[in-house]
């Protein structure tokens, strides 16, 4: 019964090995590595550019987010704790109301450009993390 090696042997060319085969393989490998490096560099450059655009869109609106934040002073916390001690149900109801109001204010401040910029920043940062960590991991595997 012929095994896999026999099958491979049968499909191999009968011609003798070309003299420049090794050189051609090495040249091909070098070209492929050069191309993948170049693609990676272009991708890095694009993501850096896109991140800058994302930051440029986000930064002028940071103030909007900060003003949307609820007043978290110690006085407010103390007041809420007093209310909790007096009437727990009412205090929790008020807290949930404050949270929902804050979230809806924040959501209304999220314009299309900001949503787009946040998406871009997330994608760029995630790509950055994967690149940082995958490179280290693949090098570690290669060394093993």
């Amino acid at each position: 019964m012929p095994d896999r090696l026999d099958e491979l042997l049968a499909v191999m060319p009968a011609d003798p090995c070309p003299e420049d085969l090794t050189v051609r393989i090495q040249a091909r490998l070098t070209y492929m590595r050069w191309r993948s490096r170049r693609i990676r560099r272009v991708l890095h450059f694009m993501l850096v550019g896109v991140s800058v655009v994302g930051m440029w869109l986000i930064l002028p609106r940071v103030e909007t987010f900060l003003t949307a934040l609820p007043d978290l002073s110690l006085a407010a916390v103390e007041e809420w704790l007093n209310a909790l001690a007096r009437s727990p149900g009412e205090a929790l109801l008020n807290l949930s109301g404050v949270i929902i109001t804050w979230i809806s204010e924040l959501a209304s401040a999220l314009e299309i450009e900001i949503v787009l910029a946040l998406g871009i920043l997330t994608a760029s940062a995630l790509y950055g993390i994967i690149t940082l960590l995958s490179n280290g991991a693949s090098r570690k595997e290669a060394m093993a």
Partner: peptide, 10 residues
């Protein structure tokens, strides 16, 4: 990432 995802998740 967490800040952006946190904002988008609302």
């Amino acid at each position: 990432i967490l800040g952006a995802v946190g904002l988008l998740s609302i």
